[in-house]
Amino acid sequence: MLLPLLLVLMNVNVASSDTPGDQRFGRFDTGLSDCRITHAQRSMGCQRLQLMQTSSIGLRIRFFGVSTNEPNRTVQLTFVTGPGSGDPILNCQSGRCRLAATTWSGQISSSSWVSFDQRGLPIGVPTNRPSIGQCTISDGRLSCQSQSRDGLQLSVEARL
């Protein structure tokens, strides 16, 4: 009972992202056939892309792949970007989205790397680092490059 009152007093918008006509929030998932992840100068393929727009000012870009060193391990690389320039990247309806951008660019604020075993359980603690870099969409390709403060370089090239 106190939580709704507190939210009203704080002037917090609690509207659901699933309200009809809401075109700013949701998720886009797709398989990839031409994708490479480079992590600490090691390269591996990636098979899936997920774009999640959870606010009007940011986008989470997540790539899924299989470790080349250990075939039973899967990896997940995530970039978080601020607002992008160019076309809106997603067009969403009731939380379901389609890729709408032909050109887009967003500044990376953080990156995250995690490995999973064959049962889907995380191996160790995910590494989440403040990072600088950029993700772009151009000519049917999504490209992301980042560098964290400790020097770790991450990059991805994927055909959309």
Score class of each variant (00 low, 15 high):
Leu2Pro: 00
Leu3Gly: 02
Leu5Gln: 15
Leu6Phe: 14
Leu7Pro: 03
Leu7Glu: 11
Val8Lys: 14
Val8Trp: 08
Leu9Asp: 05
Asn13Ala: 03
Val14Cys: 13
Ala15Asp: 07
Ala15Lys: 10
Ser17Asp: 03
Ser17Lys: 06
Asp18Cys: 14
Thr19Pro: 13
Pro20Ser: 06
Gly21His: 13
Asp22Gln: 04
Phe25Val: 02
Asp29Cys: 09
Thr30Met: 13
Thr30Tyr: 09
Thr30Gly: 09
Leu32Glu: 04
Leu32Lys: 04
Cys35Thr: 07
Cys35Trp: 04
Cys35Lys: 04
Arg36Tyr: 11
Ile37His: 04
His39Ile: 15
His39Glu: 15
Ala40Ser: 15
Ala40Glu: 14
Met44Trp: 10
Met44Ile: 01
Gly45Lys: 07
Cys46Pro: 02
Arg48Phe: 14
Arg48Met: 05
Leu49Glu: 09
Gln50Gly: 07
Met52Tyr: 07
Met52Asn: 04
Ser55Thr: 14
Ser55Lys: 06
Ser55Trp: 12
Ser56Trp: 09
Ser56Ile: 02
Ile57Val: 11
Ile57Ser: 11
Gly58Phe: 11
Arg60Glu: 15
Arg60Ser: 14
Ile61Pro: 02
Ile61Asp: 09
Phe63Val: 09
Phe63Thr: 07
Phe63His: 10
Phe64Ser: 07
Gly65Arg: 01
Ser67Arg: 12
Thr68Gly: 09
Asn69Lys: 12
Pro71Asn: 09
Thr74Phe: 04
Gln76Asn: 01
Leu77Ile: 08
Phe79Thr: 01
Thr81Trp: 08
Pro83Arg: 11
Pro83Val: 12
Pro83Ile: 15
Gly84Glu: 08
Ser85Asp: 03
Asp87Gly: 07
Asp87Ala: 04
Leu90Tyr: 01
Leu90Arg: 00
Asn91Ala: 10
Asn91Asp: 03
Cys92Gln: 00
Cys92Gly: 00
Ser94Gln: 09
Gly95Phe: 14
Cys97Ala: 15
Cys97Gln: 14
Ala101Cys: 02
Thr103Val: 06
Trp104His: 03
Trp104Lys: 05
Ser105Leu: 05
Gln107His: 14
Gln107Tyr: 14
Ile108Lys: 01
Ser109Asp: 11
Ser110Asn: 12
Ser111Lys: 03
Ser111Leu: 06
Ser112Arg: 06
Ser112Pro: 01
Trp113Pro: 03
Trp113Ser: 00
Ser115Gly: 10
Asp117Pro: 00
Gly120Ser: 09
Leu121Ala: 14
Leu121Thr: 13
Pro122Gly: 00
Pro122Trp: 02
Val125Phe: 09
Thr127Ala: 15
Asn128Cys: 12
Asn128Pro: 06
Asn128Lys: 13
Arg129Ile: 15
Ser131Lys: 02
Ser131Met: 02
Ile132Ala: 07
Ile132Val: 04
Cys135Pro: 01
Ile137Asp: 06
Ile137Asn: 08
Ile137Arg: 12
Ile137Val: 13
Ile137Lys: 05
Ser138Glu: 10
Asp139His: 13
Asp139Met: 15
Asp139Tyr: 14
Asp139Thr: 11
Gly140Ser: 12
Gly140Pro: 12
Arg141Phe: 11
Leu142Ala: 03
Leu142Glu: 01
Gln147Val: 13
Gln147Ser: 01
Ser148Ala: 05
Ser148Phe: 02
Ser148His: 05
Ser148Asp: 08
Asp150Trp: 07
Gly151Arg: 12
Ser155Leu: 03
Ser155Asp: 00
Ser155Ala: 07
Glu157Asp: 08
Glu157Thr: 09
Arg159Tyr: 13
Leu160Lys: 00
